[in-house]
Design a protein around this nucleic acid. Structure first.
Length: 220
DNA sequence: GCGACAG
DNA sequence: ATCTTGTCGC
């Protein structure tokens, strides 16, 4: 790896100062992106899929753009430094988009991180775009099991501070861990995730990006 | 010191 | 993340 663990932590401590945890005065996003990376040894395929959110009687989600970039891993998976492994490929994919997303839905945590600077915060700060994190499992913090109905949530607390929400996106399914990335409030983040997960546990953005990076890795 | 540890 | 088939349920 080009960066040492100590250097990477220093970068996080520096970049975290730029995180904005409130909503900007813009309407609900029309273009929302899902981002994910798949691996095969030290080879990876990073994907970004942009969905247009059509709000009518029911929310409709249509893919309008996508970009998949392949590359070679330059940083190992280190808990707490996950972003250094995924950001290069994801930023490269974002640069290839024709449609600029108004919200990045990341695979992992945002503020729910030991230094309050998980992947979602990192991607938001380096791109300047609003972002939020949706983790499939917990990383840090304490919480109570939320109610079993879609929409019910409980606070994710770390050192006495609310760093996210444990949110049930579908009845009787395992909850997901939502946290702020950049330029969105926690309440809005939860609202966006529910809107993007009308049918399954994970947001459609996440599902689309997951499929895209797997497919990208498969074609060799 | 021991274990836990996003993907 | 990845290793991996069938199977129960809506």
């Amino acid at each position: 790896m080009q960066l040492t663990v100590a250097e990477a932590i220093a970068v996080q401590e520096d970049l975290r100062r730029h995180v904005v945890t409130t909503d900007d005065t813009s309407p609900a996003p029309r273009y929302v992106a899902g981002l994910d990376v798949a691996y095969d040894g030290d080879e990876y395929a990073a994907a970004v899929v942009v969905l247009e959110v059509i709000r009518a009687a029911t929310v409709e989600l249509q893919e309008v753009d996508r970009a998949v970039v392949r590359g070679r891993t330059a940083f190992p998976y280190v808990p707490g430094l996950f972003a250094f492994r995924e950001v290069p490929g994801l930023v490269a994919a974002l640069e290839r988009l024709r449609v600029t997303p108004e919200l990045l839905v990341c695979d992992g945590q945002g503020l729910a991180h030991p230094r309050r600077f998980g992947l979602a915060c990192h991607l938001g700060v380096v791109t300047g775009l609003p972002s939020l994190g949706v983790g499939k499992t917990a990383f840090v913090g304490e919480w109570q099991e939320p109610g079993t109905a879609r929409g019910e949530a409980s606070e994710l607390v770390l050192d006495g501070e609310v760093v996210g929400k444990v949110l049930r996106t579908q009845n009787k399914t395992k909850p997901v861990f939502v946290s702020v990335g950049h330029r969105v409030s926690l309440g809005t983040a939860v609202e966006r995730v529910l809107e993007l997960a009308p049918r399954y546990r994970l947001p459609e953005t996440t599902r689309a990006a997951d499929r895209a990076c797997r497919d990208g890795l498969a074609e060799r």
